[in-house]
Design a binder for these strands. Structure first.
Lengths: 343, 343
DNA sequence: GGCCGCATTGAAAGCGCTTACACAAAGCGC
DNA sequence: GCGCTTTGTGTAAGCGCTTTCAATGCGGCC
């Protein structure tokens, strides 16, 4: 019922091969028939059939993205970057969003189905040995975003450095009792940021009071990356005797920092007067509430990852590349900056 | 190089037809061969080729979603709802995100390509006559989310009622000088909310001072649905002589309300002391800043729209259905509620 | 023993497109 | 005018799967 190249061929009195050539911009088609075919195609309202093209060409012009939606803002921005790049090169984007981390494997399996997508972007997913094996076995072009494995292209952010810089920033502002709000130990970025923080403490020869390190054991299916987790973790710190409380806090994610701010506010503390706070990510709300944080160039990460993927699709046998972005400190009110303008 | 049913057929000493039957759970296959085929398929690591299946079956098991990313939170939530429903029924989701409204038509065209998706979800996109024609001509199952057209299934929210309720809420709190922060006139939800607001004023026999109605002429490519637009619009209201200023404001979207709050804060006004504010949407930040607003059941809208789409894909010739959700008022601090708990 | 009906399987024709190969016609230099 | 390349087009063989139709073999029945 819908128009095929056969219909066009018939009306334009050429073979289907010629029709196909016209649409594929094959050089050896006479101007006259080109015109005729286009005109007929137009009249008939022809549109190529994507699946048929895929089957014949052995590629789909589709890229899939597997993304745990833990921090929706991060996800959105990365996605936006991907779309931007994909739009330019006529690829479509198949999204496999996993609500929680344990659903990632299911989505991964679907994304890996043969003949669905030509390449895959995998975001914020720890690459366990078993996943690595599965991914490698699929022999499908793949780029990791916000996670790392030596065998695959990756685009990440320097979390160790971010963690260290966060603590350095607070130390420089005169704090010694610095609280750390951490996600679950499973979180690789969380671990790295903690490592960085530890390193900064050592450098400065400041002791890190274990009491001040709180792991968010709430909302575990999100690895603790939620407001509520940050809120509860902060409450735990605020429950300490006044003299032992932190004077500043580094939260491993902005969502947690927002929860922490809330807890502080409810406890009657003024920020930055009584407590200074640093987050990580620079999500949308952060500028709004004046949270000092580390900016992750999310859109760029998405764009670059896509760029790398497209390249790898062209040249599958190059060595994996690893790009590491530096998180950029954005100082705002929660660590004493004057009110910043709303861009 | 990759495994096909031919390989399995050969190893299992059956015909490809039988292999296909086994995978499609055809009833008339002997238990013995079923087992054998599965075993061989397992050993060889067979996975069906999606494009080939699509071509032969004349369907793709793919649904596409065209979404302007204007309010990323809204988008995310709707998407989440869609994914949830799609996961259950083994469909994949192709996302065409448009950065700005004028890019929607391009994405629409791509989404409509024959053989790409079996159905389409179209969010937050005004259905102009020309779009309606194009969509109808494509004869593709389609459900609108957050926009309306009589010819297509739709899932929307009652914006007129929301606008009215917002104003009623403020009137009930004793305000008479109520400011209205509107997006561009092109925005259909914006128009509807304004209509509702007008209606509420009439009912209460209160005159609406035209000075207090501000259309956000900033960030026009987002129809004014941004913080900055709300911020500037609010500044405009605050520039009025003190006696003529509003004592309360209804912003047509939470993002605008947030900008407005910011402007108020910078002007030294306390909220809700000097100014009360009502938004619309209930985005993530709203609970955090204590913004009174109207909740849109975004996830449910996504889920329901998908449900309707799947139904329409099964039964294409039923009458279009139109579901209208009621926006639910959530009273928070910006209109005087006590501090609410962080859920 | 012959016939029927059923369960199981295979052969083959698509689905709509791309592309290798073949071939005719046209252009070129000599 | 000859062989040569170049240009334009058609034929047909896939791509990997589904599905119709027909064939086979089997037990059961009279």
């Amino acid at each position: 019922m819908s128009v095929t190249i056969y219909d066009i061929a018939e009306h334009a009195r050429v073979s289907i091969a010629t029709v196909s050539r016209v649409f594929n911009e094959h050089p050896r088609v006479s101007e006259a028939t080109r015109r005729r075919v286009f005109r007929v195609a137009d009249e008939l309202g022809y549109e190529p059939h994507a699946s048929a093209q895929s089957l014949a060409r052995k590629n789909t012009q589709i890229v899939s993205a597997v993304v745990p939606m833990m921090t929706s803002f991060f996800f959105m921005e990365v996605l936006r970057g991907m779309q931007d790049r994909l739009d330019e090169s006529d690829h479509d984007l198949l999204v496999y969003a996993a609500r929680t981390l344990d659903r990632v494997d299911g989505q991964l399996a679907r994304a890996l189905q043969r003949g669905r997508a030509d390449g895959m972007l995998l975001a914020s997913t720890p690459i366990t040995p078993s996943r690595a094996r599965r991914l490698a076995a699929s022999r499908r072009p793949l780029v990791l975003v916000d996670s790392y494995h030596e065998d695959f292209d990756s685009v990440t952010i320097d979390n160790v450095r971010g963690g260290a810089d966060a603590v350095r920033h607070l130390l420089a502002r005169g704090h010694e009792r610095i609280g750390l709000l951490l996600p679950l130990a499973e979180s690789v970025p969380g671990r790295d940021r903690l490592d960085g923080a530890r390193q900064a403490f050592r450098e400065a020869d400041v002791d890190l009071d274990p009491q001040l390190v709180v792991r968010a054991e709430w909302d575990t299916e999100m690895h603790g990356f939620t407001r509520y987790a940050g809120y509860r973790a902060m409450q735990q710190l605020l429950a300490l005797p006044a003299s032992e409380r932190p004077t500043a806090v580094f939260a491993c994610a902005d969502v947690m920092a927002l929860g922490a701010l809330r807890a502080a506010r409810e406890a009657g503390l003024s920020v930055p007067g009584d407590l200074e706070v640093v987050g990580f990510d620079d999500i949308e709300s952060s500028a709004y509430v004046g949270l000092t944080t580390f900016r992750q160039p999310m859109v760029e990460m998405g764009t670059l990852a896509t760029e790398l993927l497209l390249r790898r699709m062209r040249e599958p046998d190059t060595e994996p590349s690893h790009t590491v972005f530096a998180p950029r400190l954005v100082v705002r009110e929660t660590t004493g900056a004057a009110t910043t303008a709303l861009a």
